[in-house]
């Protein structure tokens, strides 16, 4: 008998009687003031929110903060200040990217996370390999909790989906928090009204 069949047979012999799935609890804790809560929590976990009127505000930010660095983006309208044609490079060639600006689907108020899937990343490595990460989020696209987040994702198809909550971090050395473990050292959410 194959290991697979051996394991399945052992489970059938040993499993308890079938029990029903419970209802998923609901929450109103984060239902109001989602933008304020999102901003507050993202700031607490080491990220920052920059409110911009439109994509020109993002371009302005790039010009002032990353004037002489490699910046990549998936937004064609940022072509003047960032590389927009990097889909055919290998992900390894992104190792020297200083700042990446990506689009995201929505944000989550309770934990400051944003949801992004692989078409928006161009390369799956892009949100991780850059030194600093920026994402563009519409203020109207923030849900209260992870329950609403998964309801919104529904049965969407993707190859890779990701919640990002702030910059990469570690506290492995004596519980001292250090931002920038292996991924980005900072995370900026450009909030568009």
């Amino acid at each position: 008998m194959s290991p697979r069949d051996k394991i399945l047979q052992a489970i059938r012999q040993n499993k308890p009687a079938l029990t029903a799935l419970p209802a998923i609890p609901t929450s109103n804790t984060f239902a109001d003031q989602v933008v304020e809560r999102f901003t507050e929590i993202l700031t607490t976990i080491g990220g920052q929110v920059v409110s911009v009127p439109d994509m020109n505000g993002v371009a302005e930010y790039i010009r002032s903060h990353y004037p002489a660095h490699r910046v990549i983006t998936t937004f064609p309208e940022l072509a003047e200040v960032a590389e927009v044609h990097w889909e055919d490079t290998s992900p390894h060639e992104l190792a020297d990217v200083e700042f990446a600006v990506l689009n995201v689907h929505f944000g989550v108020a309770e934990n400051g996370a944003v949801w992004i899937t692989d078409p928006l990343m161009m390369h799956r490595a892009s949100p991780f390999i850059c030194q600093h990460l920026g994402v563009v989020l519409s203020a109207g696209q923030i849900v209260p909790t992870m329950h609403e987040a998964y309801a919104r994702i529904g049965s969407a198809d993707y190859g890779f989906g990701l919640f990002i909550a702030g910059p990469s971090k570690t506290a492995d050395i004596e519980q001292s928090l250090v931002l920038g473990a292996h991924g980005p050292k900072t995370m900026t959410v450009f909030l568009v009204d």
């Binding site: 929590i41 976990i45 989550v108 309770e110 934990n111 400051g112 996370a113 991780f128 992870m146 198809d157 993707y158 190859g159 890779f160 989906g161 990701l162 919640f163 990002i164 909550a165 702030g166 910059p167 990469s168 971090k169 991924g183």
Partner: peptide, 12 residues
């Protein structure tokens, strides 16, 4: 923490 920094969903 309210969430881990990364919650990665590997599908394909």
């Amino acid at each position: 923490q309210p969430s881990t920094t990364y919650t990665s969903h590997f599908k394909k």
